[in-house]
Simulated assay, not measured.
Amino acid sequence: MLQPKLNLLSNHYAKLIKENGIEYLEDSRNIRLPSITPYKMSGIDREITLESRTSLIEKHLPGTKKSQRELETEGMAFLFNDEQTMERVASEIKLRGEPTGIEDTEDKYERYGLYFAEQIGYILKADGTRIPLHYGEIKIKKTTGKYHVIPRTKPRTSY
């Protein structure tokens, strides 16, 4: 979320005002700004529920029929190391994940992501090649609040 840039100029006197429990800085021109801009910087601050469609989960787990079908039809599959890693990634994103990209009103999902120092998964190619993945994303369906987790190379940037 971008915040508007507003400045109190240093050559103007500013005083602290408390009104309705909120602290403001007001300068000699009567420009008033909140002393601290309150907004959530990271994590998901609402209740979300794991998607009940198992196909969206199995698609990203090694050794499942769904991930095998993805490999055969797409030529590659984006996989977590295992189910425990997928659950840990989801927990970390819920706590510390950042919204990815700008909000797209046409997109049916909210997305939050996080980079991890250790490998969380890999891209498995049809020839057996594995490319390590260090980024995880939670996709939350806007209409239901249901989510699933995806290992990725980086945040989604295009809509």
Score class of each variant (00 low, 15 high):
S28N: 02
G113W: 05
M1H: 08
I123C: 11
L56D: 04
S42N: 12
P155R: 13
V89E: 03
G97F: 05
K125H: 13
A126V: 06
D27F: 04
S55K: 11
T129K: 11
P62M: 12
E98K: 13
A14F: 10
T73H: 12
N20V: 02
L124W: 07
P4D: 05
N11G: 08
A117V: 13
R88G: 00
E103I: 14
L56G: 09
L6V: 02
S28D: 05
P34L: 13
R46I: 08
I36N: 00
L56P: 03
S55I: 07
E92Y: 04
R156V: 12
P99Y: 04
M41S: 14
D127M: 09
T100Q: 14
R32E: 01
P62D: 11
M86F: 11
H60I: 07
I131T: 14
D27Y: 05
Y159L: 03
E23H: 03
E118Q: 10
E26S: 09
D107Q: 06
I120K: 06
K15D: 10
E137N: 10
R88V: 02
T105D: 01
L95N: 05
Y159C: 02
L95A: 14
T129H: 13
K59C: 00
L9W: 05
S10G: 08
H148T: 07
L2D: 07
Q68G: 04
N11R: 12
V89N: 01
Y147W: 04
I131W: 03
N30W: 02
E58P: 03
N7G: 00
E47Q: 06
D104L: 01
V149D: 00
L114W: 04
H12C: 09
L56E: 12
K59A: 14
E58D: 15
N20Y: 09
Y147G: 03
R53C: 06
D45G: 10
Y109H: 10
S55E: 12
R46G: 06
I31V: 12
S42T: 13
S91A: 14
S91C: 01
K108R: 07
L33N: 00
P4G: 14
A117Y: 09
H60D: 01
N81M: 12
K59F: 11
T73I: 15
N20H: 11
K66C: 02
P151N: 11
S91G: 09
D45Q: 11
H60M: 00
I36K: 14
Y109E: 08
R152M: 03
S91T: 05
S158R: 12
D82S: 08
L33W: 00
L9I: 11
R96W: 07
G113F: 07
E87Q: 04
L33C: 00
G121P: 06
R152W: 01
E110M: 05
E103W: 13
L56F: 15
I31W: 01
N20C: 04
F80P: 02
R29L: 05
T49M: 06
K94D: 02
T143Q: 12
Y39V: 10
M41C: 11
P155D: 12
Y13M: 06
K18L: 03
P62L: 09
M76E: 11
V149N: 03
I123S: 15
K59Y: 14
